[in-house]
Nucleic acid binder design. Sequence first.
DNA 1: TATGAATGAGGATTCATTCAT
DNA 2: AATGAATGAATCCTCATTCAT
Lengths: 212, 212, 212, 212
Amino acid sequence: MSPNVPSSVKNPEKVRTRRAQIIDAAVALFSQKGFHKTTTREIARASGLSNGAVYEYVQSKEDILYLVCKRIHKSVEEQLRLSLSEHALGAVRLRHAIKSFLHVMDAMKDDILLIYQESKSLPSAFLKEVLHDEENITRVFEQLLMDGIEDGSLRTAREGIPLLAHNIVVCGQMWAFRRWALHDVTFEQFSEMQIRMLMQACGADPQVIHGE
Amino acid sequence: MSPNVPSSVKNPEKVRTRRAQIIDAAVALFSQKGFHKTTTREIARASGLSNGAVYEYVQSKEDILYLVCKRIHKSVEEQLRLSLSEHALGAVRLRHAIKSFLHVMDAMKDDILLIYQESKSLPSAFLKEVLHDEENITRVFEQLLMDGIEDGSLRTAREGIPLLAHNIVVCGQMWAFRRWALHDVTFEQFSEMQIRMLMQACGADPQVIHGE
Amino acid sequence: MSPNVPSSVKNPEKVRTRRAQIIDAAVALFSQKGFHKTTTREIARASGLSNGAVYEYVQSKEDILYLVCKRIHKSVEEQLRLSLSEHALGAVRLRHAIKSFLHVMDAMKDDILLIYQESKSLPSAFLKEVLHDEENITRVFEQLLMDGIEDGSLRTAREGIPLLAHNIVVCGQMWAFRRWALHDVTFEQFSEMQIRMLMQACGADPQVIHGE
Amino acid sequence: MSPNVPSSVKNPEKVRTRRAQIIDAAVALFSQKGFHKTTTREIARASGLSNGAVYEYVQSKEDILYLVCKRIHKSVEEQLRLSLSEHALGAVRLRHAIKSFLHVMDAMKDDILLIYQESKSLPSAFLKEVLHDEENITRVFEQLLMDGIEDGSLRTAREGIPLLAHNIVVCGQMWAFRRWALHDVTFEQFSEMQIRMLMQACGADPQVIHGE
DNA sequence: TATGAATGAGGATTCATTCAT
DNA sequence: AATGAATGAATCCTCATTCAT
C-alpha cells in the first residue's frame, strides 16, 4: 500500500533506531536550510553515522525526505486522535478536536512548514502517500462533522462537509506557514477567533461556539 | 525600499523587454519543475537569450525568482484593485472584493502555487519584499473591513481585522495550493461557500452574506 | 546511422580540436591504466581542459571510450586503404595488403590492445558500431579474396572467404594482444611466416606465397 | 612459484568447498556483467556466503578473479590432456589434439572470453601466472609439433614451432572472442577449415590434413 | 550588447574492505 | 568460522557564473 523504503540492513530494531537518528537530523537540517541546500554529508554527520551508513538505511536523499514527512504526519495524527473527547454532542467534540489540533499545529509549527515547503520534492509515489496521510487527518474532522449533523448539534448541509473539514485543517496549518504575517496575534487570540469562525460556519449553537 | 535587481544594461526599455522574456520563461519552468530543478541554461534557451545575456539583465538565479514573484504579485494586486466596486456599503464592497479575489486566484493558480513552494529559496531581503507585497494585498481587505465596520454594515471587533483579512487571503490561496485535495469541489461551490463563511465571520447581514 | 556523440558546443571546428585533445589524452590513459581505473579528472587534466569543459564535448565517460575506439578504427582503415596496391593479380594485391595490415597493427599495437580489452565497456549501441567498423576492415580482405578467386590467382572455395578474411584480421590483431607470448619472435619473422601461412590457406601460387 | 591466495580459514577442505562456491558465483557474474561491474556483495549473495565470509577465503576482489582464471585454465588443460591420442604419427596426434582443443574452446566459450576481457585487471603477479598457464597449453602443441617433425610426419622448420603453436591456440580462442563476427559459420565448418589451414601450415601430408 | 565556451566547486552515491560480535 | 553493519575514500557529473571575443 504505502511505498516502502528499502534498507539493506536486516535487523529491524537497528533499522528503527538508525532511521530515527537520520530522521531527527534531517528534520532539523531541512527546517533550517531546506531540502536542497542540505547535503547528505550533513545529515550523516548530524545523525552520527558515516556517509556510507546512511545509505544502508535509505536509498536516496528523497527517501529521507519521505521518512521525515511520514514521521511528522504520524505524530500529528497520533496526537490528534489521542486528544479526541468523549462528549455526547458532536459539536462539542468537534470544537474540542479543533482546539487540540490547533495546539498540535502550534507545537509542530516547524515540521508543518517543512512539509509545506519541501514535499513537492518528493518522487510522485511518495508525494501521493504523503497527501494521503494528510487526507486521513482531514477525515477525522469529516467524521466529527458528520456526527454533529446526525445528532443535530451542527446545522449545516452534508455536501459542505469536505470543504469545512479542509477549512479546519488549513486553518491549523496556516498558523505554521503564515507565522511571518501573524506575528502580532498571540496563539490564544488566534485559537479563539478561528474556533469561533469555524464553529459558526459549521452551524453550531452559540453556546457551543463560545465554549459552553 | 524594495531591493533593486541591478542590470549591466543601461537602456531601460531593453531591460524591460528582456526581463519580460526571462520572467515568462522562468514562470513556466519554475511551475513545471520547480526552482531548483530548473537550470539557468534552460531559462536562457526558453527565453531566447544566450547564457551570458541572461546575466546582463540579472545577477543570479535568485534574482530571477524574485522578479517572478514580483510580477505575480503585481498582477494579482492590479487585478484586485481594478475590480474594486463603488457600492455604498462596505460589506457589499467587501463581498465583491472577495469574489473577485477568488477569481483572480483561480486564474493564477499555478503562479500562486509557485510562490508558495519556491519563495523560501529567496535571499532574505527579497523574501521580505515578497512578503511585503503579500501584506499589501491583505491590506486591501483590512481597509474594506474597516470601512464596513465604520459604516455599520459589518458587526465585528476592530481587533479581529488583521486575522479576518488573513483568512480571506489564505482562503483564496488555498484554492491554489490545496487543489489536489479539492478536486471534487467546483470553483463555483468553493467560491459561494467560502464567501458565505467569511462574510458571516465578518458580521455581515444575512442579505449581504447571501449576495442581496 | 552511426550513433552520434552530442556536444553542447556548437562551433564544429572547436568540437573537432577539443575532442582531439580529449581523445589523445584518453588513448594514453586508457592504454596505461585501463578504462575503469582512469578518472574523468585525469582525462581533463591530461587534455588541458577543465573538468567541466570535457563535459561540453562529451556526455559521459563512455562517450570518450567510443570516440577513442572510433578514431583508432578510422586510422587503421585509412592506413590500410591507402596502402592498397594496383597490381594486376588479386593474389599479389592480397599479399601486399596483408603485409601492410600487419605493419599497421604493429604500429598501433597499443591501440588495438585497448580496443580488445575495453570495448566491452561500451554501451551496446556504441559497441555495435565499433564492431561494425571492424567488419569494414574485414571486408577489405574479403574483396581482395574475391578478386583473386575471380582472376584465378587464388584457388579456394568462395564459401571460405569470410573465415579466411577473419583469419587475416585476427592474425594481425594477435600481434598486438599476444605480444607477451610472442616476445621471442621479431616482427619480421612473424610477418613473413604468417603471410606464408595465410597465402597458402588462400590457395595462392608458391611464387606469390613467397613474394615472387 | 604460482602465487598463493591466502585464506584465514585453516581447514583446507572447507577452503576448497567455499572457494568453489565463490568461484562458481563469480564466473557467472563476471561473464555476465564484467569484473568491474560485479560487486563483492553480489558475489557473496550468489555464492551463499555473507559479505564477511568471502573475505575469510580471499583477500581481495582481485583474488577472486585470479581464482576464476586459474580454474578455467585448469579445466581447459585437463580436458585437453585427457583427450590426447596415442596414435603412432605425430601429425595425426596433432590433428586430433587441435580438434579436441577446438571442442573444448567451444564448450568453454564464455570462460575464454572472460579471461580475454578481464585478465588485464589482475595484479601483475597474478597476471603473469595466468599467462604462464596459457603458455602451458601452448606447450602441449609445441611438443606435438616437435614429435611430428621428429617422426617426419610434419615437414616444417623447428624455428617456426612457437608461432605455429600460438596460431593453434589463438585459433581456438578466436572461436570464443570473435563469436559476434562468426555467427554465420557453424562450429563444424569452422573446425574443419581451421584444422585444414593449420595442418597445412605445419607441413602435414594431404591425407593427414584431410583426416586420413 | 551579445555570445557561448570555460570554469571548478560541489554533491549524491557506491563499494571494497574491516571489525565487533 | 560466520555475520552483517559500518566505514569513508573515491568518482562521475552538474550547473551557476564568468569572461574573452
